[in-house]
Every structure is written in C-alpha cells, then in structure tokens.
Design a binder for these strands. Structure first.
Length: 491
RNA sequence: GGCGACAUAGCCAAGUGGUAAGGCCGAGGUCUGCAAAACCUCUAUCCCCGGUCCGAUUCCGGGUGUCGCCUCCA
C-alpha cells in the first residue's frame, strides 16, 4: 500500500508526508466537547472534518481507530448545574444527547470510543502521580496540583511561543501561589458543593488538559498518528497535553505525530463563540436547512480556512448541493434501469466511452485532492465536473440521441459507482428524504394531484395546470414535466 | 508587546514559477404549452511597492488591510 498522502502538521507548520505508525492503520484522537450547552456550527466543524478524514482512510483500506472524548467534569458544567439546581451529571448527559442529535443530523458517524472524564478518574490520578513523582508537578497546601512549565525545556513547541514572550496575567489575574504564571492545574482541590473524587492530594477533580493526555494514552497508546481539534486549542490545551504526556512517558517524540487544526467559523468575519454570543446552534439551522446542506456547506471550504457563516452562504450551499443531487438521482435511475433489464441494448454504439474515461480521471483527481491535506473543496469541485458529464449522458440517452450496448451499460454502472463513492466520502446523499409524516399517504396524494393536473394539461387548460404547480411550489413541492412523465420532489 | 494566518471575478472558493478549478448570481441561446431541470456560450492578469528569475498571482523583503492565539473557547 503506497499512499502518498500529505497533511499540514501544526507542529512543523508545513505539509508532511503521512507515514502511519503501523502499516495500514490509523489512530486518531479528536478533542471532543465539554457538554454544557448545545453545539453551534463552529463546534461541529472539526467533527465533520474528521468524519470525512476517517471515511477517506477507510476507503483507502486503512483500519481506523477514532477516539473522541467528553470533558464531562468542568467548571462550566458545574456552574450550569448550580444555576438549574440539578446535578452536574444531569447537565452533561443532557448535552451529550444534544451533541449526538446534532452529529446524527450532520451524518457524522460515531467514534469508536467516547471516553468521559468521570469514567477515567483512576488513570488521570495515576498520570498526575507520575508527574509529581518525576518532579514535573508540585502540590500546594490547598491540595491543588500544578504542572511546572519551567521544568519542560520544550514547552511551547507546538504553538511556537516562548515563556518569556507570553503576557501572562495580561487579561487574567495571576495566582501568585504558582511557581510560574504559566503553570497550569492538573488537579483542583474541591470547593464546597462541588463534585469531587478522592486522590492522594485530597478530594478534588482534574484540571483541564490532563484528560486528553490520559484518554489518548489509554485508547491509542504512547504514540499515535493524528490529534485534532479547533485552532483555538493549540494553546494552551494541546501545548499542555504535549507537555504532560511527554513528561509522563519520558519521550519527546511520543504522543501524536501529526497535529491537525481546523479554522474557525465566523459571523461577519468575527470568530463565532459561545462567550461572544455570536453563534448559531446546529439545532437552529436545522429548522430551516437539512443537515446534509450544513455538512456540505462546511466541506466546500478547506478545513484550515476560516469560513464565514451567513444565511446567504448556506442558501448557496443548498442550491449547489441540489445540482449534485440531480445528477446523483439521474445516474442512479439509469443504473437501476440497467440492473432491472429495462434498457434495450443496440449494437454498434460506443456511447459511454467519453464519460467513462472522464469519470475514471475525475476519481483520480478527487483522490489526489483528498491526498493533499484533505482538500474537500477541490474534491467537491471534481464532483461537479462529473456531475456535468452525467447530466449530458443521461439527457442524451433519455432524449434518444444515444443508445447503449451491453458493454456501455457496464461502464455506466461503473460511472454510477464512482459518483457514489465520492459522495460517500463527502458524506452526502445518505439521509432519507423527510416527507414530513406518512410518506405512503403523501405518495398517494401526489399521484392524485398529478393525475388531475395531467387531465387539465391534456385539455390544454393551462390555467388550472399552472395553478396546481404554483400552489405546490409555494408548499415546497416542485413539479417537473419531463418526457418520462411528471416528477415531483420536496424542496 | 509576542506569535501566527489570510488578502484570487458581483459573491463564495481551489490552485500553480510559464498568463487562473468549481459553485452561486447575472446575460444570451437550446428544450418546454409555459415553467422547472439540464445543456451550450459569456463574465478575473490574483491588495500595493520592491527584489530574485527568461518568466511570479505563485519565491524573498517591505507596506497596507483583515482575522486569530497569548483567559474559557471547536
């Protein structure tokens, strides 16, 4: 297996050739969410990105192990619980559910494991103990345990900063009990009313960062291939993870080999964030647009680029996705006819030659685009190229301009497969259309309406025919009069 | 103050040392009872100034602008 795949590694700030640690296998750790409220579209971007990356590796024959955590013990969860007079567990469970609902809508496949902080306590305590024993961490009177950044010569290597250059305390008050202003908490002593776990340093809970070090080690080992997340996690989160993990393991080349970070979603070109209040939840967008459209919107831009969210932008994504969908439907219909033996073959023609050759070439280009740091924007562009070829062929065939031999039909089936393969990696056209209730009933009603309209058309009663079509359109149902009869679809 | 990213047509967005994918919108045409869908045609010298090079949008330097990280954050 020689896959020449290049990825942009934040650690080196350049594209590197991907070499799996184990031939044919990929281990991925993507930082998950802190479940304290419903996910917004910016939160969703890394998960859609990694979903595509995973699909691509699987398609290329890799065995993929994909881990994504839930940080279910956290200040904000506790704060939310206190506000609502419920337990932290209730809050985290509620928003984990809401997270999964959003991901299902976006057609994001489940990770292999979703470890939680609350279920990884013994291992977390174990690693902190190791860090204290090795002298990388120290305990305060209060029971808090801190990681000492000065003990780590390489601290700052991911984010490219030096301790001296950072303006610690510029925006937040420095806790002067700490040895160095940048030292960060591994273990926080329990305050009254907070959830806590027993530890060698007294009752408390883990600090942020340590959970990801522990969980990745637990499920992927000391070395694994990819670690991902949003760019805002580069510092301090991932920097601190590296510090902890490498100190604990005692090897500066352990932990993740490639660091991939996605750009932000913006609103009016400003970062979307919960604290700034300028966000759109996935749930809200879903009220107006299918999850597939949101997913497609995210993937039309390269994952490292910023992506500005707006109603117009998502509308455009919907329109262009429809274009691909039309081709998808057209080629599938033709393939179904071939498979059902409904296509009459005639000799002599070689109608599929052109589209077949182009499809194979486009698939190659598509894969090359994905090989180049998962360039979904380019890859999707290739899909549009094939889409045009499919439209031309299907139209010509339907209009009787061309015919097929048995050999052509096999090539057309291959073209259909190629288009489907690309769609599968992007993750579109996999969700059932929502008929908004009893689809059987809707089918029947539409049959009746269309038949009445056809009678009107036969009688050249255009006023009635057009009124039916226009009214349906207002209701979100589109009618198309084609040579093969009337087609309808829900907008 | 430190570090970093980006700047491509009306809009969105790829990309390459040898004059620039794709999508949306718009215009014209074909098809249609009219539409819709689809197809065809048309719409850019890539922020500014230097430098390297036979040649730069692509490399280097400077400038301007926008954004991000240095606090929780995807």
């Amino acid at each position: 297996m020689t896959v020449l795949l290049r990825v942009y590694n934040t650690m080196s700030r350049s594209k590197e050739e991907f070499k799996p640690l184990k031939e044919g296998e990929v281990g991925i750790y993507c930082c998950g969410v802190t479940p304290y409220n419903t996910p917004h579209i910016g939160n969703a971007r890394p998960f859609v990105t990694w979903d595509v990356i995973r699909r691509y590796f699987l398609k290329r024959g890799f065995k993929v192990k994909y881990i994504q955590n839930f940080t279910d013990v956290d200040d904000k969860i506790i704060a939310a619980a206190n506000r609502e007079f419920v337990t932290w567990k209730e809050i985290s469970e509620r928003y984990i559910k809401s997270y999964f609902a959003a991901m299902d809508a976006l057609n994001v496949r489940r990770a292999d494991v979703y470890p939680k902080v609350s279920e990884t306590m013994p291992e977390i305590i174990e690693m902190i103990k190791t860090l204290v024993d090795k002298g990388f961490a120290y305990k305060l009177e209060s029971g808090d345990v801190y990681y000492s950044v000065e003990k780590d010569e390489e601290y700052g290597k991911l984010s490219g900063r030096k301790l001296d250059d950072m303006q610690a305390g510029a925006r937040i008050e420095v806790d002067d009990r700490k040895g160095h202003p940048m030292d960060f908490a591994l273990w926080k002593s329990a305050k009254p009313g907070e959830p806590s776990w027993e530890s060698p340093w007294g009752a408390g809970r883990p600090g942020w960062h340590i959970e990801c070090s522990v969980m990745s080690l637990k499920y992927l080992g000391e070395k694994f291939d990819f670690h991902g997340g949003g760019s805002d996690l580069i510092f301090p989160h991932h920097e601190n993870e590296i510090a902890q993990s490498q100190a604990a393991i005692g090897d500066n080349h352990s932990f993740a080999q490639y660091w991939l970070h996605n750009g932000f979603i913006t609103i009016d070109n400003e970062k979307m964030s919960k604290s700034a209040g300028n966000f759109f939840t996935v749930e809200d967008i879903l009220k107006k647009y299918p999850g597939e459209v949101i997913r497609f919107f995210l993937l039309q831009t390269h994952y490292r680029s910023p992506l500005n969210f707006s109603e117009d932008a998502i509308k455009e994504a919907q329109t262009s996705l429809k274009r691909l969908k039309n081709s998808h439907d057209a080629i599938n219909e033709l393939a179904a006819k071939i498979n059902a033996g409904e296509v009459e073959f005639s000799g002599g023609e070689n109608s599929s030659e052109n589209i077949f050759a182009k499809a194979e070439e486009i698939l190659k280009d598509f894969n090359e685009a994905m090989d180049d740091d998962f360039n979904t924007a380019l890859a999707i562009g290739k899909m549009f190229d094939l889409s045009r070829e499919i439209n031309i062929y299907c139209n010509d065939f339907i209009n009787g301009k061309i015919s097929m031999t048995a050999n052509d039909s096999q090539k057309i089936l291959r073209v259909q497969k190629i288009f489907a393969e690309m769609a599968e990696i992007i993750g579109i056209f996999e969700q059932e259309e929502n008929f908004g209730g009893n689809s059987e009933l809707v089918e029947k009603l539409m049959e009746i309406i269309i038949s009445i309209r056809q009678d009107a058309r036969a009688a050249k009663n255009w006023a009635v025919a057009d009124k039916i079509r226009d009214s349906l359109k207002d209701a979100g149902v589109v009618l198309e009069d084609t040579p093969q009869g009337v087609k309808w679809s829900i907008q």
